[in-house]
Nucleic acid binder design. Structure first.
Lengths: 262, 262
DNA sequence: AACTTAGTTTCAAATAATGAAACAAAACAG
DNA sequence: CTGTTTTGTTTCATTATTTGAAACTAAGTT
């Protein structure tokens, strides 16, 4: 039952502090942090000191503010290179983006969230709230649904339990039952649509990236807006998306995510 | 115990383990890690367990390997957005890259190292973390020298003490004296050249990004190769680079790095 | 079956983390 | 300029966690 950050030792607590600071999205004063933190002054103070000394946080002495530090960028580079699909997928993402002329996203699951690991903007970029490293909800994005639809039931259960089911638009699925019906449809179809469920006017078609054993590695999507096109029109890109996703799956499997015995 | 028996702190130790895993640049087995680690088996084991549970590492059960986890990518996104110059500089980096048709780098100092936070290739567009997050030596890159040349003496001393002075090419400055002479020249000139000091055939011109108070925020560079051009030819881009660097400095100062009093 | 090597658990002792409270230093009154 | 509040830092006895040698299990090899 342990969530991140509680009862798991000192390291977990320190990382929870990192999360909190990152969540602010801007440099933050010690007092602000203290308000939101479950830890007493002295304890939080020591954490922040240690993290700063370690380069995980950066302290601006003029403004007396803390922000996530550059050591993270260095470590994340390693994560991106060794674990994410992005380096393997790169050539395919490029090709797909060129071919369809729309925004392409590559995403993986980070716990119950969608984490975008790569992105290509269309030539006429739509202003959207996503980039590599950005996270999003799993229950109302194309890539999110395409991934969780193919999770084994026990994992799916955990993931669903952590969804907020916030109603972003009038098309958002806001109940577990509705989402499960949608996921069943996605499994039957083999891929997912986003029908303006996360942002009004934004639609996408998303294809899962699965190992031969059916394990979920990630998903990739082609996104556009209702102002420019329709889902039916996006459907014409399906063969290309499928080809790209399957190529990524195949290469990823060989290089990095071999299944046990199947 | 008496004295400053400063026990390292559990968080610092855990982060050291992260660094070690990241340094491998590939998924790594527990035993490999143990060889390189100063910690005994049980201790290292627990660290790795905690970090995995926290999403800082990812464990591949099939191969029994650990790799940096996706939580880092999420945290780094926050670091990149709130602390790095990249978001502010983006439009200027784009414009400069378009104008000069060469590779443009944006870098900041992370301790004694150069950390690249953004990059534009002459032809290929967005690359995100493939380039952002990379580190390089400060003493033999254009951006590195452009930054450390403008550090106050006490900081410069520390940084120099941490340089390896490895001879990458026949042009690399390999002594503190030689480097200091070069830095003096850079200060006088206002910007730096890389004359194939890091990689044979690669030259660049790098301009520091400084606050009005003279504090070093970062540097940006235009890179090319001796096969295509010469330093003199690159010099023609100088006004554009200066303009871009100054624009970034000005905006960064207003938004995020105000000096104390000026 | 005997022997290796890799990974996991145990538990008393050693060590580090905790947090209430005191302290210092600014910021802000009056 | 003096008292007051707000914010940031240090102290220290208590408490809880971390530590690591060793025992153990599992998997692979001869």
């Amino acid at each position: 039952m342990s969530e991140r950050g509680q009862g798991d030792g000192t390291v977990a607590k320190a990382l929870a502090v990192m999360d909190e600071i990152a969540a602010f999205g801007r440099p933050v004063r010690f007092a602000e942090l203290l308000d939101r933190s479950p830890y007493p002054k002295a304890t939080l103070y020591r954490f922040v000191q240690v993290l700063t000394k370690q380069g995980m946080l950066h302290f601006d002495p003029d403004r007396q503010t803390y922000a996530p530090g550059l050591r993270l960028v260095r470590l994340a580079h390693a994560a991106w290179q060794t674990f994410s699909l992005a380096p393997i997928a790169r050539v395919h993402v490029d090709a797909l983006s060129d071919a369809v002329g729309e925004t392409v996203h590559l995403a993986q699951l980070d716990g119950a969230q969608v984490l975008y690991v790569d992105k290509r903007n269309a030539r006429q970029p739509i202003e959207m709230y996503s980039a590599a490293g950005k996270v999003g909800p799993a229950y109302c994005t194309g890539v999110g649904k395409a991934m969780i639809a193919f999770l084994p039931e026990d994992q799916l259960k955990q993931v669903i339990a952590q969804q907020s089911f916030h109603r972003f638009t009038e098309h958002t699925y806001t109940t577990e039952a509705a989402l499960r019906a949608e996921l069943a449809a996605i499994r039957a179809r083999g891929y997912a649509y986003d029908r303006e469920e996360h942002e009004p006017g934004i639609i996408c078609i998303a294809y899962p990236i699965l190992t031969r054993g059916g394990r979920v590695l990630g998903a990739m999507s082609v996104t556009s807006s209702t102002a420019r096109t329709t889902l039916d029109a996006l459907d014409t890109h399906l063969p290309r998306i499928r080809t790209a996703a399957e190529a990524i799956a195949s290469e990823a499997q060989d290089w990095r995510f071999p299944d046990a015995a199947e």
